[in-house]
């Protein structure tokens, strides 16, 4: 299906009549996105950043940025949120998380916000394992199994992570804002799909040393439902179909809990543990 994306002139976000039918709320309680119905389809509002109007048939997407919002923010919202929402609504399988290519074997990292998914993908890339995505995992089912698709050659991380991944001084980056690190020789990006070998759910950081434990299938399914992109939570047929696709994923791919202390000095050991774990699967 072809989709037409257009960028309209920037405009203040005016209040929408009626309550949103769904919201994304961050762990801090902030509203990350609101979902509204409109005659032509859906409005996905990222407060303070942009409105995305999506037609019912998903063929047209119009973005109206809020005043002063940088193009990179629009690109990020489109790639990491709008595209996976549309993909899942159309029957695809996209998850919130990052992914890495370990020598032709794919690993995906999921977990709630601020668990370190992007930093871990960056640490893997820094160790020579190219990343495929930093915030949105795109999966296709093939004869070989589930394929991880390359999404976007950018890592967006907070200042301390950016300094660690680039080797720069901490003062180089704003600690409060995310920095966008382009892929390159030091942080390679995988340009081809790889077969997904395992999905790691990032734990809270309670472990004293890097540790991987197996998750039961039902636990994995309830966990992965939290990291799915759903455009219309009231569309029961699509929600049900998405649930069944995720069930198939859970039965086809091992789900593991990965926990480690959230210290940069530990990341090389985490990467080594992942490489060993994947080799054994």
């Amino acid at each position: 299906m072809s989709r037409e994306f257009s960028l309209a002139a920037e405009c203040e976000q005016v209040s929408v009549s009626g309550a949103p039918y769904d919201r994304w709320v961050t762990p801090d309680g902030d509203i990350a996105a609101e979902f509204y119905r409109e005659d032509s389809g859906f409005l996905v509002r990222f407060p303070g950043n942009a409105d995305f109007h999506i037609s019912k048939k998903l063929t047209q997407i119009v973005c109206i940025p809020a005043p002063g919002i940088a193009q990179t923010v629009i690109d990020t919202l489109f790639a990491n949120s709008v595209t996976p929402l549309i993909g899942n609504h159309a029957g695809g399988l996209n998850l919130h998380g990052s992914a890495v290519d370990f020598g032709g074997v794919g690993a995906a990292f999921v977990g709630t916000s601020r668990r370190g998914k992007t930093t871990l993908a960056g640490a893997c890339a820094r160790a020579g394992h190219p990343f495929l995505s930093e915030d949105s995992i795109a999966l296709d089912l093939s004869d070989q199994g589930f394929l991880l698709q390359p999404v976007r050659p950018v890592l967006r991380v907070f200042g301390d992570s950016a300094a660690y991944l680039t080797g720069a001084d901490c003062d180089t980056f704003d600690g409060q804002q995310k920095a966008a690190l382009d892929a390159g020789e030091a942080l390679p990006f995988a340009t081809r799909p790889v077969v997904l070998r395992a999905i790691y759910v990032l734990g809270p950081g309670d472990a004293e040393m890097p540790k991987i434990t197996r998750l039961g299938a039902s636990q994995a399914l309830t966990e992965i439902m939290r990291h799915a992109f759903v455009l219309d939570v009231e569309d029961k047929a699509r929600l049900s179909a998405h649930f069944f696709r995720l069930s198939n994923l859970v039965q086809a791919v091992p789900f593991l809990m990965l926990d480690y202390p959230r210290r940069f000095s530990v990341l090389p050991a985490v990467v080594n543990l992942l490489a060993e774990d994947l080799l054994g699967r």
Binding site: G216, S218, L221, T222, V233, S240, F243, F244, S247, Q251
Partner: peptide
């Protein structure tokens, strides 16, 4: 009727399509 179920790994996971909640 608004609950769908799937058996995975010997357990059954229920999804309440209206509430968006899951049960094992």
């Amino acid at each position: 009727e608004n609950v769908v179920a799937r058996e995975v790994g010997g357990e059954t996971v229920l999804l309440d399509l209206e509430a968006g909640t899951y049960f094992g």
